[in-house]
Amino acid sequence: MTDLSGLRAVVTGGASGIGLATARALAERGAAVAVLDLGPDQLPAPLLGLKADVTDDVSVRAAVGDAVEQLGGLDILVNNAGIGAIGTIEDNPDEQWHQVL
């Protein structure tokens, strides 16, 4: 499928890197795209930037609600945002691994 016209997408962590490339690719194929990120202020048109912290449920629910309202619905979700840990399982406390997962 290369034509995404009429579809509405949300990309988390889409203000840079792989997320931004994904958001741009969706938009280039015709989708309306909202980007959820901690710093969505410098996104190129036609991307819609919405501030959200994926570790905060209230923040995510509000941003997704805004995206649905502004885009007129939601068809595609790209869960790109994430964090990592450095070291082995033994090097990091369980709390850090729970946050990563």
Rank of each mutant, 00 (worst) to 15 (best):
Q70K: 14
T22D: 08
R29P: 03
E28Q: 11
T55A: 15
T88R: 06
T88H: 00
A34T: 10
V33P: 13
V10S: 00
V60E: 02
L43D: 00
V100S: 10
G49P: 02
R8P: 08
G39F: 04
G14S: 02
V10K: 01
L50R: 02
R61L: 14
G39T: 11
G30A: 04
S16T: 14
A62E: 10
R29E: 09
E69D: 11
L7G: 07
D56R: 11
V54T: 10
A32Q: 14
A23D: 10
G65S: 01
D94F: 11
G49D: 09
G14N: 12
G49W: 00
D37V: 06
D56K: 10
L47F: 08
L20P: 03
P93R: 13
I83Y: 01
H98K: 14
A23G: 00
A9M: 11
V10G: 01
Q96T: 15
V58F: 04
S16H: 07
V10P: 01
R24I: 15
Q96A: 14
R61V: 12
L20K: 12
Q70A: 14
L20C: 04
I76G: 10
T2I: 13
G84T: 14
V64Y: 07
Q70Y: 02
G19F: 13
G72D: 09
E69F: 07
D56I: 06
E90A: 15
D41F: 05
L74N: 06
A45K: 09
L4K: 03
D57Q: 12
Q99D: 03
A21I: 04
E28P: 00
G30W: 03
E28G: 05
G82W: 03
A67P: 04
S16L: 14
A85M: 11
R61G: 09
G13Y: 06
V58E: 03
N80Y: 10
I18T: 11
L7F: 12
I76Q: 08
A23Y: 07
L4P: 04
V10C: 08
A32C: 03
R61Q: 14
L77E: 07
V60H: 04
L48Y: 13
A32D: 10
E69N: 02
A67N: 05
V60P: 07
E90D: 12
I86L: 14
A34M: 01
R24S: 13
L50D: 04
G87S: 05
E90V: 13
A25Y: 07
I86D: 09
E28H: 03
V100R: 03
A81Q: 07
G13W: 09
W97I: 11
V35R: 01
V64A: 05
G17H: 01
G65C: 03
I83D: 01
A27R: 02
L77D: 05
A25E: 09
R24Y: 06
P44Y: 00
E28N: 08
N79R: 10
L36V: 04
G17D: 06
T12H: 04
L38S: 02
A31V: 02
G65D: 05
P44S: 05
E69G: 10
E90L: 15
V58R: 12
A62T: 10
E69A: 14
G19N: 09
R24G: 08
N80R: 06
I83A: 13
G17R: 09
Q70N: 12
V10H: 00
L7W: 12
S59T: 08
V78L: 00
H98E: 13
D91G: 06
N79W: 13
